[in-house]
Design a binder for these strands. Structure first.
Length: 191
DNA sequence: AGAGCGATGGCCT
DNA sequence: GGCCATCGCTCTA
């Protein structure tokens, strides 16, 4: 029989909708050290006409992954020491993405805590740079496409209630309420 | 060629 | 709550 063997994945067409829809999905990274995974519990959307977005001033070598097709991983380095992980959304050649800000650890928790030099799983991935470190996602993973390499996205949990706020740590277009998190979850970066 | 700065986190008070 | 470490990328000259 002809089943529509749909690889279920969140709709990444609209970046803001995708930021909300990604909550609860399971992010997985397979590395030689082992497999780590967690539920996405906090996100932020960045769009092409958004002054806070890295893509606002056009494509550069740094942000080129952001102009790839939806599902591409965009990793950037900031503050001289931190990596942050995004899932590209929207149309190819239009720079839009969803920043992953926090995970609720699921598999490989010991490894995540080791990478983070922390004993408390609650602080293992409760911030964009912590998430990147706990999952060992860095420059080498920039440009990977979800579910075609070492990084995968799978269905996870269905959020009970979603909270929406303004975004964190930006100085431009600060009024857009494009941060989403699972209300009541203990693994988010801040209320 | 070089200054300025950033979608942060950790430690200090 | 505030400060600062630290460096690649971007923009300007």
């Amino acid at each position: 029989m002809k089943s529509a063997a749909a690889i279920i994945e969140p709709d990444l067409t609209d970046s803001v909708t995708a930021a909300r829809a990604l909550l609860g999905w399971k992010l997985i990274h397979e590395t030689p050290e082992g497999r780590t995974s967690g539920f996405i519990v906090e996100t932020e959307a960045y769009t092409a006409d958004d002054m806070a977005s890295h893509s606002y001033n056009g494509k550069t070598t740094r942000n080129s992954a952001m102009f790839g097709p939806a599902g591409t991983i965009y990793v950037y380095f900031t503050y001289g020491m931190h990596y942050c992980v995004n899932i590209v959304t929207g149309q190819k050649d239009v720079g839009e993405a969803v920043l992953l800000r926090a995970l609720e650890p699921l598999e490989g928790i010991t490894l995540m805590k080791q990478r983070r030099h922390q004993s408390d799983p609650h602080v293992a991935a409760n911030g964009p740079a912590k998430l990147a470190q706990a999952m060992a996602i860095g420059r080498a993973q920039n440009g990977l496409v979800l579910n075609t390499g070492s990084i995968h996205l799978e269905p996870g949990i269905v959020p009970t209630e979603i909270a929406q706020t303004t975004r964190v740590g930006i100085t431009k277009d600060i009024d857009r309420a494009w941060r989403f998190y699972i209300k009541g979850n203990n693994f988010i970066s801040r209320p």
